[in-house]
Amino acid sequence: MTWDERQRTIFGARALHRRRELRLSNAELARSAGVSTGVVTKIEHGRPVRDSNLEAVRKALSLELDQADVRYPDEVELVMTAVAEWILSKGSQRHLAALEVIRFIVARGASVHNGTGPESSSSEPEG
């Protein structure tokens, strides 16, 4: 089976999340799956690996592996497309627009992880 970059990235994120959920180190997962730690790292980073290695890690983590299901939800695809179009519309200033998006995402991630973002609040959003 041939996976595209997005599918590998999504599965890799799921594998990383599951490994952490199981409180396994990279080396422990590798040992359990019978693969190298480098293979585990490649999978978690969405890089290509042999199908047999992917299957071994999938089994070790008890994850489902449905290629059709390993995709971004339609809403995420829509937002990604809109942001990409907005950045490209900035012409020669597109690099600054991309940095603006990155800064927003990083700040948003920091606020969620620090307990100051909207998800950490029990109140309803204003509007």
Rank of each mutant, 00 (worst) to 15 (best):
R58G: 02
Q67V: 14
R20D: 01
E55C: 01
D51K: 10
G91N: 11
E64K: 15
V39Q: 00
R6S: 03
L99W: 01
V70M: 14
E100I: 03
R23A: 10
E124V: 12
E124I: 13
A107I: 10
R14P: 08
E64T: 13
P48H: 14
R71T: 15
V79S: 04
E28Y: 12
G46S: 12
I87M: 01
V76W: 00
V49E: 01
P73H: 06
S36P: 00
R19G: 01
G34D: 11
S111V: 02
E124M: 12
L61F: 07
R14H: 15
R94N: 08
I10F: 09
V101Y: 02
K42D: 06
A97D: 01
A98N: 05
R18G: 02
H45Q: 10
R50T: 14
A107Q: 15
E126L: 07
L24Q: 04
A98R: 08
T81D: 09
A82K: 04
L78Y: 06
L29S: 06
R103K: 11
K90Y: 09
T116M: 07
R31M: 11
K90Q: 14
L78H: 11
L54I: 03
F11G: 05
I43E: 03
S36M: 06
R8V: 13
I105C: 13
S121A: 07
A84V: 03
E124P: 01
K90P: 04
E55H: 08
G115P: 08
T116Q: 04
R18K: 08
V112G: 09
H45E: 13
E85W: 07
R8N: 13
I105P: 01
M1L: 15
W3M: 10
N53S: 14
A13V: 12
V70Q: 12
K42G: 00
R58V: 06
P125T: 11
V35F: 02
E21K: 09
S122Y: 03
G109W: 09
A27I: 13
V57D: 02
L88I: 08
R47Q: 13
D4H: 05
V101W: 02
N53M: 06
V40W: 00
Q67K: 14
L88M: 12
F104M: 09
L29Q: 09
V106G: 03
L24W: 00
L65G: 06
S111G: 07
E100F: 02
S52G: 03
R20L: 12
N26Y: 07
I43K: 01
E28C: 14
R50F: 14
R58N: 04
G91P: 02
L54D: 01
L24F: 00
E124D: 04
A56F: 06
E5D: 04
E124A: 11
R94W: 08
D66N: 15
S62Y: 10
H17N: 08
R31N: 10
P125I: 07
R8S: 15
R8W: 10
L88K: 14
A107E: 15
R47E: 05
L78S: 08
W3S: 01
S52Q: 05
Q7N: 12
D4C: 03
G34Y: 08
D66M: 11
